[in-house]
């Protein structure tokens, strides 16, 4: 600014301050701040609005069926009797199967990427796992229905029938017609979908372990596996559990992939090979076909339950991770 050229620095500063304090600019400044603050508040409002609208939409169903809605197992659009029991059971069981597979595999991937793989291999492998997270869930669903389900039906499930079916107790889980679709298939596909999320959290927190701790363990003669098992894992356990919860939150709410391979059956069955339902799959399948207000309200009430379940699980995961970071990656 040429006008300031001849001034001393102090008068330049005061001139600038006067320039900055001009009311018109002040107004722009305040307007910008208000716009930014409003946008940030919108995030907060959004979550509350979602919760409120789900609750409000589900209210007629909660009123009509009371607490029975939570544990009842009938779902009969013709008789207008609805209860969430089967869908909640399916949501929990498919996610449980997913976690049983995804947690050990994710742990293995995190160990491989931080301890085992040579430096040149880490980048490409990490990128491949990230790519898996980027595949849209509708593609998991299509692949599941057309490629994976036939293999489950023709090879895996008959084998499970023959070898695990006769075992008393757990045999009931693996008996039933080998249809290919069902809880087990959905759980496996969910596992593949959440592995990238869990393994990336685990890998991140493993790298936060202070090198002195690891070196001390190596110095007293620990093997690499013993360092992981007895130093890295105990040190990062809070964060690891937090990461598992975040993955669980994803699995519980996943919709398209399970909708394709679950069979949309509102029957409760012990066998993991039988078709079932989850909250999200029931909503996806039936919402546009729901023909009575009570039917629509019951589906929204299912949505509210899913919202509450995932909210609690995600909050728990997030809080664990925050605590872990505060304690220095512990």
């Amino acid at each position: 600014m040429p006008a300031f050229a001849g001034m001393t620095s102090r008068s330049a500063v005061s001139a600038t301050l006067a320039f900055a304090r001009r009311p018109r600019l002040d107004l722009a400044d305040r307007g910008f701040q208000a716009a930014a603050g409003g946008a940030a508040l919108l995030v907060l409002v959004l979550l509350l609005a979602i919760a409120a609208s789900m609750f409000y939409g589900g209210l007629p169903a909660f009123r009509a069926f009371g607490l029975h809605f939570l544990y009842g197992t009938e779902w009969n659009p013709v008789a207008k009797q609805f209860a969430a029991g089967v869908a909640i059971y399916g949501t929990l069981v498919s996610s449980l199967i997913a976690m049983l597979i995804a947690v050990p595999v994710s742990f293995g991937i995190a160990v491989f990427l931080t301890e085992v793989a040579p430096a040149w291999l880490r980048g490409p492998v990490a990128a491949a796992i990230e790519l898996l997270a980027g595949i849209p869930s509708i593609i998991f669903g299509m692949w599941g229905l057309f490629v994976f389900v036939p293999i489950m039906a023709d090879h895996v499930e008959p084998w499970l029938n023959d070898h695990l079916g006769p075992i008393p107790g757990i045999g009931a889980l693996f008996s039933g017609p080998p249809l290919g679709i069902g809880m087990l298939t959905a759980g496996i596909i969910l596992a593949i979908m959440v592995i990238p999320f869990i393994s990336s959290v685990m890998r991140d927190v493993f790298t936060l372990v202070p090198p002195q701790l690891r070196e001390a363990a190596f110095a007293v003669g620990a093997t690499r596996w013993e360092v992981v098992r007895k130093v890295v894992l105990p040190f990062t356990s809070t964060a690891v559990i937090g990461g598992i919860f975040l993955g669980l939150g994803r699995a519980l709410g996943e919709t398209m992939a399970v909708t394709f391979v679950l069979g949309n059956a509102h029957d409760l069955s012990v066998s993991l090979l039988m078709p079932g339902n989850t909250i999200s799959a029931a909503i996806a399948n039936e919402f546009t076909e729901a023909d009575s207000p009570l039917y629509v309200s019951s589906l929204i009430a299912l949505g509210f339950l899913l919202f509450v379940i995932t909210f609690i699980v995600l909050c728990a995961g997030k809080l664990l991770l925050i605590r872990a970071v505060r304690q220095g990656g512990r």
Binding site: A49, I50, S53, M54, G57, L246, G249, R250, L252, G253, E254, T255, S280, I283, A284, F287, L299, I300, G303, L306, F307, T310, F311, L314
Partner: peptide, 10 residues
Amino acid sequence: SAPSIIIGLF
């Protein structure tokens, strides 16, 4: 991480 189907319902 919220389920996207809930956004749809909303």
